[in-house]
Design a protein around this nucleic acid. Structure first.
Lengths: 343, 343
DNA sequence: AAAAAATTTTAACGCGCGTCAATATTTTAT
DNA sequence: ATAAAATATTGACGCGCGTTAAAATTTTTT
């Protein structure tokens, strides 16, 4: 590699013997120049280690190659995993993804959208906070920036939604619990942050009724995103007061169940599907840690791959369509039951 | 707010009645203009909703207001938490942080540094992969970009290092275990990804010797960042073969311990500090989930706050010092014993 | 081999803002 | 009130690249 540092495109054009507009064209889309030219450019690139100034590049372009990824809570490994997946697909497609976390805060979520605007992204993949989101701010944002919502839906907002079918989660868990033992009660937060929680509760009630059982929803107090702690405290209370009407507990999500299991353990209550167990516990999400709970958690898994894959594909279609799709689509993926030891 | 969209600084200057260079100065540092001017600008800003084009801003500036944050593995909530902390401090100081995760991959880590270069960041906060890192690439990067390493040190690289004192972790755990029961064996990965693991092993050995006990290091197989699984498998083997020489196990980190505890539970081995327990288990890091293991995990906590705080402060000093500090500093924070139920 | 089509080159402008020098104005000190 | 210091304005250039129109070249078709 040559030692002389090349400081701009004109200089690189002259050392490579190709005109600047063609070089510019190449960097926008390498396949848009003739093969012979392309190989010459790439040879020169090997030699001279030049890279365009991204700020100058993006200044005039109406649309950048940036993609914003926004998740509500990155300290939750579930979102970290899905973000990783999405990120890599974007990179593979030649985009420049940037990851943001709202950290559970409405204000931060708004700030992020604000920053995102200045980034002039080609598109945004956005998992909103849910109940805490500022609908009007997000609605406005989605009008200006091509946005695909994922994980949790805000009805009517964004060009498309991709997520998991909450009904399918609950159908599988409830049906399994019923046929392998007894109908479950449903353990959840009183005021869940996420709209999926509401859909799961409704699904629980309707499935129980369809099967001819009385739904039994247990709501525990707690705000924010410290779900394990909320589950733990709620379970400690319920288990201390011995108010559980059922020996089968279906938690709205795995993180609550992690707390629930910790409480049960502390109380010396055996959880599992063996005959000598006092309680069965199941949940939804297949959180990365739910393999390592004690006992390991029976749960229902998202199709991570499918959700992230489809989200990204939908965004790409949206981008290629100039920011518009014919109509707002909602794609829900089926969930998959994961049998482990807890139920 | 006025409806007319302002499209550049000149236009905003004219509607606000202030000259463009002064507006420019304001955006670079609001405190650099006179108070009267500042309030007039801010009033106009309320009215007209103008924001400078960040690409044009950064194009000519030698140094941007960007700060890169690089962590080795974002799906580990430990890093997610510390990243969140650092991120917010940077924002508070008027910088624009961007978060990257190497996802445990050497190649990705190199790519990130590459991307970071084009961002022309004012500084970078970098937690390297460790053993898997490409030292020469990182060394080169740190020569060009003001960088503070945190969490895991690469000796001699970067302007400074901020982390936790591994010796202090192990001193506290070993001394506690000894005085409350028996000297522990040390449970770790055979080829740990992270240099902290090596320091912890060495600390364990030296502390045990100082106390007059025979060190006993148990190395389990496994590569990568799936520590819980590695701990689980390793523990299953050790517990099945019944080769533990000690009834007290000190895991190198909490994530291994999470796997270890899952294995012990599955084996029906009681863990805890009660007399009827067969095993005591402790570890290091105070991982966000270690409160919810069964039993809850006795561990030694990082001073999160101090580490992230000092990392950021050091980077700011570095930036203000024009990218150079008088000498490479290494700051290690003491750890804090957290007594829970497992030991 | 000539004509038609596709691509590249040349030349030049614009983008939005940083920055600078000279000048004008405001603030602070005397 | 006046002088000195600090700050703002005017006017202008440059940054690196996107983009365009017209001319030149290469490739493909016939």
């Amino acid at each position: 590699m040559s030692e002389s540092k090349i400081k701009n495109m004109a200089e690189f054009a002259s050392v490579s013997g190709i005109s600047r507009p063609t070089i510019s064209k190449y960097f926008n889309d390498p396949s848009s120049v003739r093969a012979t030219i392309r190989t010459r450019i790439e040879a020169a690139l090997e030699e001279h280690d030049y890279r365009p100034n991204i700020y100058a590049m993006n200044q005039n372009r109406r649309l950048t190659k940036n993609i914003g990824i926004v998740v509500p809570y990155l300290s939750d490994p579930f979102f970290a995993e899905i973000a990783r997946n999405i990120e890599q697909r974007c990179i593979a497609a030649g985009f420049w993804p940037t990851l943001f976390s709202s950290h559970g805060s409405r204000e931060l979520e708004c700030n992020i959208l604000d920053s995102l605007r200045s980034l002039k992204p080609a598109g945004v993949l956005f998992a909103p906070l849910g109940r805490a989101s500022d609908r009007s701010v997000i609605e406005k944002f989605c009008k200006d920036v091509p946005t695909v919502l994922f994980d949790s839906d805000l009805e009517g907002i964004g060009a498309a939604f991709v997520g998991s079918d909450n009904f399918s989660f609950v159908a599988q868990s409830v049906e399994y619990l019923v046929r392998s033992g007894a109908p479950p009660c449903f353990f959840e937060m009183r005021t869940p942050a996420n709209p999926n929680a509401n859909k799961r509760r409704k699904a629980y009630i309707s499935i129980m009724e369809r099967l001819g059982f009385e739904p039994d929803v247990i709501k525990v107090d707690g705000e924010g995103w410290a779900f394990e702690d909320i589950g733990y405290r709620g379970a400690m209370r319920v288990l201390s007061e011995d108010t559980l009407a059922s020996d089968t507990v279906l938690c709205s999500n795995d993180r609550l169940a992690i707390g629930f299991l910790a409480a049960a353990f502390e109380k010396g209550i055996r959880v599992g599907r063996e005959p000598d167990s006092a309680l069965r516990v199941a949940a939804h999400d297949d959180h990365p840690f739910s393999r390592f709970t004690c006992p390991s958690l029976t749960t229902v898994a998202h199709d991570y791959e499918a959700v992230s894959n489809r989200s990204v594909e939908t965004l790409f279609e949206l981008i290629e369509g100039g920011g518009r799709l014919t109509s707002r689509t909602e794609k829900l993926f089926e969930a998959r039951l994961i049998l482990r030891a807890s139920a």
